[in-house]
């Protein structure tokens, strides 16, 4: 097995007295595509947000590319990382949101080049050249100067993917990237994600697109009520689920 990109060990997360993640153990190898399935409220989105430390975990350990996320260990003690160190860790992990969250006051191209220039210190000309290439690769080269409000949901989501890729991340997280889209726009976004998977990007995708999971995922994990219920290849989990909860979920979404 190649090197682990994500290594979650007994990860726990609570909001107040409500424990959302009850000890998640999950490993994702470099270059692997993992699809997270599960009913809403199962904790899959929360887990995704824990990976890039948008949520701080309460227990367990979470490593990305061998590095502990959000904390550092010195001997017996665990220290919180400084915000700048957390930001650095985050800058190497791309995230795509359900609601796109593009910056509405910036054009598509400006959305893509903002972080490379402002955070990585790239020269503007260089960032623009790279940004245009990325927009072309998601099929939106012609729309570089459009504002998000002038783009369809599917186009916005593809810009959001380009924006995340502009930071050259080693891991991409997708939080229900097609759930907010009109059905006819889903395909374009999935195409881009499929291409990205083929290029060898490590991806964790929270999705309800069973077809996509079956076709693209190396591994499918089914979560419910804060625990991993079942995990395996798409043919195992989707086509031949063992657990009752997995069975009823797969039946309800197929």
């Amino acid at each position: 097995m190649s090197q682990l990109m994500v290594d979650a060990r007994r990860v726990r997360k609570s909001f107040g007295s409500n424990e959302v993640l009850k000890g998640i153990d999950l490993q994702v190898a470099q270059g692997q595509v993992l699809c997270l399935l599960g009913p809403s409220g199962s904790g899959k989105s929360t887990f995704l947000r824990c990976i890039n430390h948008l949520e701080t975990i309460n227990g367990g350990r979470l490593y990305v590319d061998g590095e502990l996320m959000g904390f550092k260990e010195r001997g017996e003690a665990t220290y919180e990382l400084k915000p700048s160190a957390v930001a650095k860790q985050r800058s190497e992990i791309g995230m795509v949101f359900q609601r796109f969250n593009l910056f509405p006051h910036l054009t598509a191209l400006e959305n893509v080049i903002e972080a490379p220039i402002g955070i990585r210190g790239l020269k503007r000309s260089e960032a623009v050249e790279k940004g245009m290439k990325l927009l072309q690769s998601v099929g939106l080269g012609e729309r570089a100067n459009h504002y998000p409000s002038q783009l369809s949901g599917g186009q916005q989501q593809r810009v959001a993917i380009a924006r995340a890729l502009a930071m050259e991340p080693k891991l991409m997280l997708f939080d229900e990237p097609t759930s907010a889209l009109d059905p006819e726009l889903v395909g374009d976004v999935l195409d881009v994600m499929r291409k990205l998977a083929q290029s060898g990007m490590t991806m964790i995708v929270v999705t309800h697109e069973i077809g996509f999971a079956r076709e693209v995922a190396d591994r499918v994990v089914f979560m419910d009520e804060g625990v991993v219920v079942e995990s395996g290849s798409p043919s195992e989990v989707i086509d031949n689920p063992q657990n009752e909860r997995t069975k009823s979920f797969i039946n309800s979404v197929l």
């Binding site: 890039n52 948008l54 915000p83 700048s84 930001a87 650095k88 985050r90 800058s91 190497e92 992990i93 791309g94 995230m95 949101f97 609601r99 969250n101 593009l102 910056f103 903002e114 972080a115 402002g118 955070i119 959001a160 924006r163 995340a164 930071m167």
Partner: peptide
Amino acid sequence: GQAEAAKSLGMSS
């Protein structure tokens, strides 16, 4: 979501 997207790109507050 704007601040969250910014955070996820590694931007400081």
